[in-house]
Computed example of a mutant assay.
Amino acid sequence: MKLFPGVPRHQKWMMGVTFVIVAVYSISHNKEQLAEATRTRLTSPTPRIIDGDTAEFPNGRVRIVGIDAPDDDRPQLKAIAADSLQRLAARDGGLDCSASMFDYALRRENQCRTDPKSYGRLNLSCRFPANKASVGASMVAQGYAVDYRMYSGGAYVGLMQKAAAQRAGLWGVDYEGMRQLAIKRATVPDGCAMETIKR
């Protein structure tokens, strides 16, 4: 079977060259972003909390990898989750974020690749400086966020199930809303193979 039947040979050649140039540019651009995110470390004793999984620093905005908190479609839950993260950050010395801080030991599966940036935010993992506790694990365990399987590898599923059973945090405010968010974030998109790691 011929690709592009009826197209002259020189046009096919030009299309091929254009494809290669675009592919090389795209790959190199993504590698630059990934390298930048890997080197990046954002720390602040008083970050501005946007919602339960996003914080703003003087030099950038961070989306906490591996969790998802309610958003604009559930404004009451979003406000409660944001307030919870604000209180935890104030109590425990702010936030310290980098790509290397993810809770790899808790994963149940391989993670899908996380883009270095999304919607102008760096996708990083965070810890509280005072006690080195994982922000993602803390937010899920206290019931203010859910496990985002695609990017967590299921690291926070156990914490989420326990929070749901105890009706902790937002699970006690709107159980069905949190359940729907958890179901949505438990699915894995096509092209992202997940195989359970047996340990």
Rank of each mutant, 00 (worst) to 15 (best):
M1L: 13
K2N: 15
F4G: 13
P5V: 06
P5R: 12
P5W: 08
G6W: 00
G6I: 00
V7C: 09
K12E: 02
K12D: 04
W13T: 14
V17A: 15
V20S: 09
Y25W: 07
Y25V: 07
S26A: 15
I27R: 11
H29W: 14
A35Y: 05
A37W: 06
T38L: 09
T38R: 12
R39N: 14
T43R: 10
P45D: 08
P47K: 12
R48K: 13
I49F: 06
I50A: 09
D51E: 02
G52Y: 00
G52H: 02
D53M: 07
E56A: 13
E56R: 11
E56T: 06
N59E: 14
V62I: 03
R63T: 10
V65I: 12
G66A: 12
A69D: 03
P70G: 04
D71Y: 01
D72E: 10
D73N: 14
R74T: 13
P75H: 05
P75R: 02
P75F: 01
I80Q: 11
A81F: 00
A82E: 00
A82M: 05
D83A: 11
S84C: 10
L85W: 00
Q86H: 11
L88A: 08
A90S: 15
D92S: 12
D92R: 13
G93I: 03
G94L: 10
D96V: 05
C97A: 04
M101W: 06
A105P: 01
R107C: 05
R108C: 08
R108W: 09
R108E: 15
R108N: 13
E109A: 09
N110W: 09
C112A: 15
T114C: 07
T114Q: 13
D115V: 02
P116C: 07
K117Y: 05
S118R: 14
S118L: 13
S118N: 14
Y119Q: 02
Y119P: 04
G120W: 03
N123C: 14
R127S: 00
P129C: 02
P129A: 01
P129I: 00
A130D: 15
N131I: 09
A133G: 08
G136I: 03
G136F: 03
A137S: 06
S138W: 00
S138L: 01
Q142S: 15
A145I: 02
S152H: 04
G153P: 11
Y156R: 06
Y156W: 07
G158A: 12
L159P: 07
Q161G: 11
A164Y: 04
A164K: 15
A164M: 09
A165I: 13
A168G: 13
A168F: 11
W171D: 11
G172D: 05
D174A: 03
D174R: 05
Y175D: 10
G177W: 04
K184S: 13
A186M: 13
V188G: 06
V188D: 05
D190I: 14
A193L: 12
M194L: 14
E195T: 15
I197L: 15
K198R: 12
R199F: 08
